[in-house]
Amino acid sequence: MDSIVQQYIPMADVIAKTFGSDVEVVIHDLTIPQNSVVYTVNNHVTGRQVGQSFNHLITDVLLSQNFTNDYSANYYFHTDDGRLIKSSTVLIRDHDKKVKGALCINVDTTKITQSINYLTSLLPQVPNNGPDPTPQFEDTSKMDHINEIANDLIDKTIGNKSVDSLRREEKIEMIRFMEQKGIFLIRGTIERVAEKLKISKVTVYSYIDEIKEKYNKG
């Protein structure tokens, strides 16, 4: 585990002990993207295990409109058994401002939702007279920052391997991991991977198509 990331273990413990068993805290070491989960508390909430990889870092954190000052707060996802999880993630940086990891807080909303539903059932129903507009905006000023993180994840995923000696299957597996984690949703990452693996952009796209066809069958 990276020494900077390791310093956040007491914080994870105190958050979990303060807010109880429905609050899970997960620490990621992003210097090892494929096995980024290095510490968990109350992992019965989502079932996260040490040695697993990140799931929501790209789509719900880096690409979120709410991502600012190195954190994204209060996004939601469902567990495999249908429970709604409220989540927040903050990046961990070293003294040189390099991203080293992330700390995630996952709250099982089941008990809260049940209580709210019960209390709501006791109140008179108020009609909804109009749509609830959601403002849409795009903050392009942070894209350089996001690209820096994505490029670092790419570099860590490929590692220091001699790409000239990599078999085609090994390159496809790396691309499959990055595609699964949403890295290719970020502008410029296809070009970065092509450059790192010493293949063309067309080849990267063909590998992605091959991966989608293989894993979407059935």
Rank of each mutant, 00 (worst) to 15 (best):
I4F: 03
Q6G: 08
M11T: 12
K17I: 07
T18K: 08
F19V: 10
V25F: 05
V26Y: 01
L30C: 04
I32W: 03
P33L: 05
Q34W: 01
Q34M: 05
Q34P: 01
V37L: 06
V37P: 01
V38K: 06
N43G: 09
H44K: 14
T46G: 06
Q49A: 11
V50E: 06
G51P: 09
N55M: 14
L57C: 12
D60N: 09
V61E: 09
L63R: 01
T68A: 10
T68R: 08
Y71M: 10
Y76E: 06
F77G: 07
F77T: 10
H78Q: 04
H78S: 11
D80L: 07
D80K: 15
D81F: 02
R83A: 11
L84Q: 11
L84K: 13
I85W: 02
S87M: 05
S88E: 10
I92A: 00
V99T: 05
V99F: 07
K100Y: 01
N106P: 07
T109D: 07
T109V: 15
T110P: 05
I112N: 10
S115P: 07
I116L: 14
I116V: 09
N117V: 14
N117H: 13
Y118Q: 12
L119Y: 06
L123E: 02
V126M: 11
N128P: 15
P131Q: 08
D132T: 15
T134K: 10
T134R: 08
P135G: 00
Q136L: 09
E138P: 02
D139F: 12
M143P: 00
D144E: 12
N147G: 00
N151H: 08
N151R: 12
D152V: 01
I154Y: 04
I154E: 01
I154K: 03
I154S: 04
N160W: 05
K161I: 10
S162R: 12
V163A: 10
R168K: 07
E170G: 09
K171E: 04
K171C: 12
K171I: 06
I172Q: 12
I175G: 05
K181C: 02
I183A: 08
F184R: 03
F184Q: 03
L185R: 12
I186R: 02
I190D: 01
I190W: 01
R192H: 08
V193K: 02
A194G: 04
K196L: 05
D209I: 10
D209Q: 09
Y215V: 07
